[in-house]
Design a protein around this nucleic acid. Structure first.
Length: 797
RNA sequence: GCUCGUAUGGCGAAAUUGGUAGACGCGAUAGACUCAAAAUCUAUUUUCCUUUGGAAGUUUCGGUUCAAGUCCGAAUACGAGCACCA
């Protein structure tokens, strides 16, 4: 038998020394860019889930190389982020040292799996040589007016004194300390991502993303079409503009609601009689977490604004204005016209506060808002209409003619909050000068490197810990030379991962973020794999970033990625997500140690549908190990004959495996190889060609053992240096087949038939079948349907 | 609430896209080898009818079709994403 640890080490060394997987920019070969999301190198080490996607893409990369493509299959590290920072705070070591350690562990683990990454292109987002260009690109955003600073409500943990992302404050509590998260207004850098909302939708046409991925993107962008309508206010000249998708229900408006932060409150302070009450309400709303404000609180709250009255622009009727936290400042205009008869939330609010409910579309029931279609009533110019679409259009025309409103498209997608008050991120390369305002750090001074310090905790007022490092913060203004201070916010974790796939094309370039030559040669990522959890945000950020670069002539393609797929999770043996606390974590190192990397790889490919979650099964793994052992043993059956023992099956298998690897059907690729092995085992002896083809087809999935068998049995040049087997379509067809005979759709007989027989021949043979006769005797044959090379169905009455 | 998926043996799953349901693997049962065990090999393994053979069967109900796991309509369950988005 074989010793898997030895042969794995041996072939990993061989590939290293021969630089078998090195990608060279340029040349005659067709390029193919395979990318798997780079990991965050956590202290926990590699997960068996990583093994699944890395092996899947590795098998594609390996096959493509053997098919003659110039394959780029790189790997790197997404190493900025909170966990490394927390670790550093606790242990008083520099996060860069913690990251270095973790990368080392991860890399060792991946290398032991035999994934064919081109390690010459490796980098981490935390390398100053890399984040220099992240900063440079941020400055491109800034210089093109795409970055701006603004006050924003952010999730705030009063205990940790830091801003938190939505992910870090899930459930309304701080992920780290469990403290209740509140809203706090803070100055933040933002990128004008909402300007790209429409382009990010239309751009999807130029991609081959999986449907579920495209849908995820579209939902996240959240396009809605409607209208903005101006309501005048009786007591002032201010107008209250609302956004609505249902201008056709305007006759049913019985009150208005503005967000607690709406500027109309501030600007009419003196006219509002209950201003104290309203400000108290705003205070209370702000102290609620986003979570409480949206998910927990079912009960509507609000305060009537005493002293302001709106006028319905179509009816001239006076209506009350309320403020309530169910209206968000961040969406639309921060104000709504409430139509309680036809909107759930407005209905609930009106019920609670005893406001009139006027139905304008018939068909509803008592005590229930009606959202369906029906005949318009109480609606003056719309009365009698029955089509929602037509009514909306008519009202839009009416509003536009009178100058009361206009059609408007809104997007849920907002500008990208690009600041973090954290140490472990790319410093935002801007300097604030008292005289010149914000001044970009000159290109020649990039990167702005993170200083070496001992304390990584945020300051009391929530500024980044960088703000405390006076030596670093105080600089001369690059413009006037006067006193100036560095921006102390850092970039979010998503920054570095928004363009890393470009850097892989030319990772060591010191003069540009990527050379034009490399960009033109490698073009788009042909196949990008990542977790479903990243399909909304990371993918959208990366596409936005790239579209911006494209619009300013910095990259050749508007869309950076062609195919995007995502793998399912590997769950614990008990069918739930692996976690330390549940004690169901499978450590890939231990599996490799006991069964070998090839068995682990083969098993994870065989486990099931690649896009679906799958539970770990050690017995399933053992089955795959057994399969590899049987292949090793079949070497004993080799004879000296030429050709194939079962040529048809060989060609069928080449076809099946080639197609399956191109379409992510890894499980059936493995099973077809198991079928081939089962058949070969039945033979007295097999040829070298038989075995060579079997291991060649298995090589992308189990690269070590197949190379070893190839060498051990002298089957030819190393597989990684050989050309992928080709099949002949004609040779995949058997001479004969088992023809199925049905009577009234039920199988009544099976008979051998020569391939390509005519319908007449099939029918004739079918009617001769003894068992079939039993079911046709004494009955009228109505129809006979013959499907060539398949079956005959006899319809009787 | 909205959007989108998924539902097939004891288990993980296949099914040429409308044409033999359950390939392949796990598990199980029986047997061979062995003093014994492990490993390995052989056979059986959707259910029921003790039978060459037949009946039922892909969550449920209905439909289209010579033919439905696959297409259409409805229901149920589970999963994912978004969510007071006006």
């Amino acid at each position: 038998m074989y010793e898997e640890k030895e042969i794995e080490k041996k072939w990993q060394k061989y590939w290293d020394e021969k630089e078998s997987f090195k990608a060279i920019t340029g040349g005659d070969k067709e390029k193919y860019y395979v990318l798997v999301e780079f990991p965050y190198p956590s202290g926990a080490g590699l997960h068996v889930g990583h093994v699944r996607s890395y092996t899947a893409l590795d098998s594609v990369a390996r096959m493509k190389r053997m098919k003659g493509y110039n394959v780029l299959f790189p790997m790197g590290w997404d190493a900025f982020g909170a966990p490394a920072e927390q670790y550093a705070i606790k242990n008083h070591i520099h996060p860069k040292d913690a990251v270095k350690e973790n990368i080392k562990t991860f890399k060792n683990q991946i290398r032991k799996l035999g994934i064919s990454f081109d390690w010459a292109r490796e980098f981490a987002t935390t390398d100053p040589e890399y984040y220099k260009w992240t900063q440079w690109q941020f400055l491109q955003f800034y210089k093109h007016g795409m970055a701006y600073k603004d006050k924003k409500n952010i999730n705030w943990c009063p205990k940790c004194k830091t801003g938190l992302s939505n992910e870090d404050s899930a459930g309304g509590v701080c992920e780290r300390c469990g403290e209740k998260v509140v809203q706090k207004e803070k100055e933040q850098w933002l990128l004008r991502m909402s300007d790209y909302a429409e382009d990010l939708i239309t751009g999807l046409k130029d991609t081959e993303f999986a449907d579920r991925v495209k849908l995820g993107q579209i939902n996240w962008i959240g396009k809605s079409t409607g209208a903005e309508v101006d309501f005048s206010i009786k007591e002032t000249s201010d107008k209250l503009t609302v956004y609505t998708t249902r201008p056709d229900t305007i006759y049913g408006v019985t009150f208005m609601v503005v967000a607690p932060e709406h500027p109309i409150i501030e600007s009419n302070k003196v006219k509002i009689k209950n201003i104290d009450e309203i400000e108290a309400y705003k205070e209370k709303a702000n102290s609620k977490s986003e979570f409480e404000r949206t998910e927990l609180v079912k009960e509507k709250t609000g305060v009537k604004i005493d002293g302001l009255t709106a006028i319905n622009p179509v009816t001239g009727k006076e209506i009350e204005i309320w403020t309530a936290d169910y209206v968000m400042m961040g969406y639309g205009t921060g104000a709504i016209m409430a139509v309680p008869a036809h909107d759930d939330r407005d209905f609930e609010f009106a019920k609670k506060f005893g406001i009139d409910i006027i139905p304008v579309i018939s068909g509803g029931e008592e005590n229930k808002p009606y959202v369906g279609e029906g005949e318009y009533i109480n609606s003056d110019i719309l009365n009698g209409m029955t089509s929602k679409e037509e009514a909306i259009n008519k009202m839009l025309v009416f509003l536009e003619e009178k100058g009361l409103g206009k059609a408007k498209t809104n997007y849920r997608l907002q500008d990208w909050i690009f600041s973090r008050q954290r140490f472990w991120g790319e410093p935002i390369p801007l300097i604030h000068c008292e005289k010149c305002g914000w001044v970009p750090v000159p290109d020649e001074d990039l990167p702005v490197v993170l200083p070496d310090v001992v304390n990584y905790e945020p300051t009391d007022d929530g500024e980044s810990p960088l703000a405390n490092i006076e030596k670093w913060v105080n600089v001369a203004c690059p413009k006037c030379g006067g006193h100036a201070r560095r921006e102390t916010d850092t970039m979010p974790n998503w920054a570095g991962s928004s363009w890393y796939f470009l850097r892989y094309m030319d990772p060591h370039n010191e003069n540009e973020f990527v050379s034009k030559e490399a960009l033109d040669y490698w073009g788009k990522v042909d196949w990008y794999n990542g977790g479903m959890e990243h399909t909304a945000r990371h993918l959208l950020y990366a596409r936005f970033w790239n579209q911006f670069l494209f619009n300013h002539g910095l990259v050749p393609n508007k869309e950076p990625i062609d195919v995007r797929v995502s793998h399912g999770m590997i769950l614990g043996p008990n069918g739930v997500k692996m976690s330390k606390s549940k004690g169901n974590v499978i450590n890939p190192d231990e599996v490799v140690e006991e069964f070998g990397a090839d068995a682990l790889r083969t098993y994870e490919m065989f486990i099931g549908d690649y896009e679906k979650d799958a539970a770990w099964s050690t017995n399933g793994l053992k089955g795959c190990k057994k399969f590899l052992d049987r292949i090793w043993r079949i070497q004993e059956k080799l004879n000296d004959k030429d050709g194939y023992t079962n040529e048809t099956l060989i060609h069928q298998t080449i076809k099946k495996v080639s197609n399956d690897l191109e379409t992510m059907k890894y499980n059936t690729a493995v099973s077809s190889l198991m079928i081939l092995l089962n058949e070969l085992e039945k033979e007295e002896s097999i040829t070298k060609n038989d075995l060579r083809t079997l291991i060649h087809l298995l090589n992308p999935i189990a690269p070590h053992i197949t190379e070893e068998i190839n060498e051990h049995s002298n089957l030819g040049s190393p597989l990684c240096e050989s050309t992928w087997p080709v099949y002949d379509e004609n040779k995949t067809i058997d001479d004969s087949y088992e023809m199925v005979v049905q009577v009234n759709g039920k199988v009544r007989g099976k008979m051998s038939m020569k391939t390509g027989a005519s319908k007449e021949e099939m029918e004739a043979l079918a009617l001769e079948n003894e068992n079939v006769k039993k079911f046709t005797e004494g009955k009228e044959i109505v129809k006979v349907i013959a499907i060539p090379n398949k079956l005959v169905n006899i319809v009787v009455r």
